[in-house]
Write a protein that binds this DNA or RNA. Structure first.
Length: 896
RNA sequence: GGGCGAAUAGCUCAGCGGUUCAGAGCGCCUGCCUUACACGCAGGAUGUCGGGGGUUCGAAUCCCUCUUCGCCCACCA
């Protein structure tokens, strides 16, 4: 049968293929879960990106991993659901729109709450789901029909239900304490949202004069402006330096206020002067001290970070504390000013440079101001405990395992969660108060009057922390609190893939909400990815400008190339170091591999007849060594790739596929099989069947990583129904009928033979086109089999196997001691040959020396496992044979 | 101040609880436009596996320690 004519171009063009293919997958509903008898669900919920976000490489990595897992399990017959969506991202989104209207010279306060929120919605509707479209371009096989948004009406119902239940359970309370306040975003933040950053600051030593005029005490602070809010100075009760002063009073500099010196055990004696200024309204630690000693807690910084008396718990404390010349000054300007004033009064003892961690807003990077205020908190201990118990019982796990300790430590030391934000964009807190009777309650519906007295009411003006909605993602997306079919079928999910930086923000909290509200874990495995970094190992970020835009890569090299590099380059949880300045070097390997696959396909497709005989119907007698070898390698590859994916070793799965497709199928089998195909002999039928089988397996195995190229080629294979798709085709299973260790061993010797001849040809500079003669002196059965591989050797090494036993020519020894004699057609260069052989002999002697020493070692022989000793003995035997053969050849040549 | 991770060829990394494990890709050198592929083919060079100690018959691989980087947590003002 003549080869079919496949006029494919020699270069794979991803851009022609990707968009139409993605459309085809979507229009056939390939990404939706397909229930069926015996099909177990497999569910991944996407970490919802910010609705206003754009795709960066971190998303690329993390979503490609999810897609690989989903495609793998889909092929394995699971009823897969990858549920996509976006997060309303309270502060982040509000900031974006605030910047937008700032360009119009307006603030949100100019617009008013309602108009502003309307404006944000507009923005979300117009540019909102860009990131989801971008995910499609990298091939993400999400079920887009189930796309969710954390501000959807259904979702809002879940958020409200959760709030009210927690309220009813007494787990939500109003806390009056010092919280993290962002003076730029004008909102409270949770502990997690106020990130520590190492900063070099100044430690100021300030003298506080004693009220009785008998001297002064010196305190140290990094925030001198807060001294205006001081209501005490404390020393450690056991500190002898402090003893004479406890009970005295000091005059607070720059004010007319007198404050006491008290003893408190929280003071670290080793740090600073031993005397600590206490600012209860502007420091969480000082707040605790203030509570212990019943101190006044005046606020001296306003919400926007400017100086000013702003209430607080004054308890008769004289106001104002902030001098007129400082009123309204920004805190950092005020700091400088205060330092100058102190200096002028001789109250600044000294300053020193100081390394410390400063909390910054995770959204705008402003330095966070601790501030006394009233906020809603969730009691976390009761939520954490069941999760810890379940974790210890092994109900869910982390990969890589090392995150487990981090998780456990955080959960064990969990602190209450400040969930109220002074923003406008988000879920409004459903707490209502009666203006008449002060009754306060949380409500599932919007009430019209006080249920107690019928009085007028007002709703809490604040919104909920954005994470208070995302922590419900695994079930709120499925319709909870309604008892929906989706909820019943797809909760709990299975694998959660995300970046470690949101382990506390999100992962830990989802576990808590899952156990608390549904009594079940939300997922079984948490896969924490690595971080994308540049060549200096800096995290890729917009502000550093060192990022790689995944869509640039798609545009240059195709989605498969991007995916390939991301997956192959990241070992389990390891960081991914990529070079933003050399995209070619970074992504060409993926492009090259896709192109290689394309060309393997091009060749095979051109050979295959319209009807390929199924493997099972082949007469085994027509199979050659190469056939049996590649079939055996195929089964082994299937098993190894499957195992690697099951263990989340995506890099290893990728590597194995690469070695198989390129290093075995293309480099050896395709080359070996060519003569048989050209001859159009009976053997061609078998060759066709083997090619089709092995290439088909390779495409199936590679599909999760490089879906576009594999789908494209797979559809062209003969025998495909027009509507058959690789994306929904079954995962291959290793067939023990084709396992063949003998063929693997024999073919390895064939490979050695070919390599040896090629090496000799290169060393002797034999032109590629001129044929050489080859004599094989076989010492084992395996090599005798080799002598029947003349056609293959001819093809691969351009060497004619001589029937005669010519012992002339260049020489090589195989690993089993068999010898090769390569007739180069004339006398050989004895000097070159001597050098070649004696180099080889030296190498062998060295190896053999250490091996023999090992075997001569009594304790090795007696203590090492017997099978190891046996293997070493065999090895020694083979190496001896090689050595002897080499040595005698060298003797024959008369090398000096 | 705690905890964790990394250190292997010029670069990015693999080596999954020990015995052809000293590897891959890129880069480099030498030949090849061999009718699938020059985004390719064939051949080749390159590393006292961060330093030091220890355990063992045997250690990139396990233990200790040091150095250098990175990350997370933490109320030393």
């Amino acid at each position: 049968m003549p080869p079919r004519d496949f006029a494919l171009p020699p270069q794979y063009n991803p851009h022609e293929v990707e968009a139409p293919l993605y459309q085809a997958w979507m229009s056939r509903g390939a990404f939706a879960p397909h229930p069926g008898p015996g099909r177990e669900p497999y569910v991944i919920v996407i970490p919802p990106p910010n609705v206003t976000g754009v795709l960066h490489l971190g998303h690329g990595l993390n979503n490609t991993i999810q897609d690989v897992l989903i495609r793998f399990e889909r092929a394995r017959g699971r009823e897969t659901l990858w549920l996509p969506g976006t997060d309303h991202a309270g502060i982040a989104t509000q900031n974006v729109v605030e910047r937008l209207i700032a360009a119009e010279g307006k603030t949100r306060f100019d617009l008013g709450r309602e108009a502003f929120v309307e404006r944000v919605w507009q923005f979300v509707h117009t540019t909102g789901n860009t990131i989801l479209e971008q995910l499609k371009r990298i091939g993400a096989s999400c079920d887009w029909s189930r796309t969710r948004f954390t501000l959807d009406p259904d979702y809002a119902r879940a958020v409200r239900e959760v709030f009210v239940r927690l309220w009813e359970q007494g787990l939500i309370y109003r806390g009056h304490r010092v919280i993290h306040w962002c003076p730029r975003c004008l909102t409270a933040l949770s502990d997690e949202e106020a990130e520590f950053k190492e900063t070099t600051g100044t430690l100021y030593y300030i003298r506080y004069p004693l009220a009785d005029g008998s001297g002064h005490v010196t305190v140290a602070t990094t925030r001198p402006e807060t001294l205006l809010g001081d209501t005490a100075v404390v020393v450690h009760p056991d500190d002898p330096r402090g003893a004479p002063y406890v009970g005295k009073r000091v005059k607070l500099p720059l004010t007319s206020v007198e404050i006491p010196i008290l003893a408190d055990p929280s003071v670290e004696k080793e740090f600073g002067t031993g005397f600590v200024k206490v600012t209860p309204a502007h420091d969480a630690n000082d707040f605790e001290i203030g509570v212990r000693h019943g101190l006044a807690m005046p606020l001296i910084l306003r919400e926007d970070g400017t100086m000013g008396d702003d209430g607080g718990d004054r308890q008769g404390d004289p106001a104002p504390r902030v001098p007129a010349e400082l009123q309204g000054l920004d805190r950092f300007a005020a700091r400088k000013q205060i330092v100058r004033m102190l200096e002028a009064q001789g109250l600044l003892a000294k300053t020193e440079s100081h390394q410390h961690a400063v909390r910054r807003c995770y959204r705008c990077d402003s330095i966070v101001e601790p501030r006394l205020s009233d906020q809603w908190f969730v009691k976390m201990k009761p939520l954490a405990e069941p999760v810890l118990a379940a974790y210890r019982a092994g109900e869910f796990r982390f990969v890589p395992e090392r995150w487990e300790a981090t998780f456990e430590h955080w959960m064990e030391n969990i602190r209450d969660w400040n969930i109220s934000r002074q923003l406008w964009w988000g879920h409004r807190i459903p707490v209502f108060s009666c203006t008449a009777c002060s009754h306060q309650w949380a409500d599932r519906e919007d009430p019209t009057a006080c249920p107690k007295c019928g009085g007028a009411l007002e709703q809490d003006p604040d919104v909920l922390d954005t994470w208070f909605s995302s922590w419900l993602w695994p079930f709120a997306t499925l319709g909870w609190p309604e008892d929906t079919p989706d909820l019943r079928r797809y909760y709990p999910g299975h694998t959660l893939v995300t970046a470690p930086e949101i382990l506390f923000f999100w992962v830990a909290r989802m576990l808590m909400s899952g156990y608390h509200f549904l009594g079940k874990k939300p997922f079984t495995t948490v896969y924490l990815t690595g971080t994308a970094r540049d060549m200096q190992h800096r995290r890729m970020s917009k502000s550093l400008g060192n990022g790689i835009d995944p869509l640039d890569v798609v545009g240059l090299y195709g989605a498969d190339a991007l995916r390939w590099t991301l997956i192959a380059g990241s070992a389990l949880g390891a960081d991914l170091i990529l070079d933003p300045d050399d995209l070619e070097a970074t992504f060409a390997p993926g492009r090259n591999f896709a192109n290689k696959l394309w060309n393997i396909g091009r060749f095979i497709l051109a050979q295959l007849p319209a009807q390929v005989t199924p493997l099972q119907r082949l007469d085994r007698a027509t199979l050659t060594l190469s056939d049996r070898w590649i079939l055996a390698r195929t089964q082994r590859t299937i098993a190894e790739v499957t195992a690697a994916l099951e263990q989340f070793r995506l890099d290893e799965a990728t590597r194995r596929c690469f070695e198989f497709a390129w290093g075995e199928l293309a480099d050896w089998y395709v080359e070996a099989v060519k003569p048989r195909l050209a001859a159009d002999a009976a053997g061609a039928t078998a060759a066709h069947a083997v090619l089709a089988h092995c290439f088909d397996a390779a495409l199936r195995l590679l599909h999760p990583v490089v879906p576009f190229i594999t789908e494209t080629l797979w559809q062209k294979l003969p025998g495909r129904a027009p509507d058959e798709l690789l994306v929904t085709a079954p995962w291959p299973r290793p067939d023990p009928a084709w396992a063949d260790e003998t063929a693997e061993r024999e073919f390895r010797l064939l490979q050695e033979t070919v390599s040896a001849v090629r090496n000799i040809r290169a060393e002797y500079r034999v032109p590629p086109k001129s044929s050489v003669g080859l004599t094989i002196k076989a010492t084992t059965e395996a090599v005798r089999a080799l002598q029947q591989q003349q056609e293959t050797i001819q093809r691969l090494a351009n060497a004619r196997v001589n029937g005669a036993t010519s012992r002339a020519g260049a020489h090589a020894v195989l690993s089993d001691g068999s010898e090769l004699f390569v007739d180069l057609g004339g006398s050989i260069d004895v000097a070159l040959e001597c050098r070649r052989l004696s180099d080889e002999l030296t190498r062998l002697e060295k190896q053999l020396g250490s091996l023999s020493a090992k075997l001569a070692n009594e304790s090795f022989v007696s203590r090492a496992p017997p099978d190891v000793v046996a293997r070493e003995r065999e090895k020694e035997h083979a190496w001896r044979a090689q050595r002897d053969a080499l040595a005698s050849k060298i003797a024959t040549l008369g090398c000096s």
